[in-house]
Amino acid sequence: MNYNWNWGIFFEASPEGNGTYADMLLSGLMWTIVTALCAWVIAFAVGSVIGVLRTLPGRGAQMVGNAYVELFRNIPLLVQMFLWYFVLPEVLPESWGTWLKQLPNAPFYTAVVCLGFFTASRVAEQVRAGIQALPRGQRMAGTALGLTTAQTYRYVLLPNAYRIILPPLTSEFLNNLKNTSVALTIGLLELTARARAMQEFSFQVFEAFTAATVIYIIINLIVVTVAGVIERRVAVPGR
């Protein structure tokens, strides 16, 4: 392989003029993490609501929940990204659209909202599965004690369901984190975008991608470790 390796490249100044290539990648990492965390807040909240809707006895609520999941699961994430970024400002009333287009950091907000609603459909699936995995008698016991439906969910069903689905939720969180890279197509300067930019500026393809790869693997390990700690923390004695 006649490729000229240059691992010192990370400490050379990037042509952007504000630091080295290493700084460039780290700022990418920062955007990846911030975007993933913000999107997760939306995904967890919306996903929980949609997941609960799908387990309520009312047909209307179930239909709304099912429609949400089908809609967001059956359109590629990249297409959704374009819909939020290019299409939404055009179909809103003009003043709103203009406001959206002039928003500073628009790629960031778009990525957060898009990923949040997309991941919510996956969280909703897990929440529904978790609630349905509980014995039917748990809901009955809550109801029989006089708890309202909302109270039964809040105090009985959800605390147990979340414990059951912690492992799949961890992998959804990781998917969410990896999916932030799709937002490079709308100009979010996250880790993969920065590695790509580094490759374009320096022609050191493999150093740039190796660095990004190593960083992603480290984040994965950290998330898995933290999830393990949380799992042990919330574990119920005797189960």
Binding site: N179, Y216, I217
Partner: peptide, 25 residues
């Protein structure tokens, strides 16, 4: 585990640049 840790976009870039070198090799 390696593949599942990486975003697909990054993997697409990786192979786009790597495959010509592997082919050469």
């Amino acid at each position: 585990n390696f593949m599942r840790s990486l975003p697909l976009v990054l993997v697409i870039f990786w192979f786009y640049f790597l495959v010509p070198y592997i082919g050469q090799w």
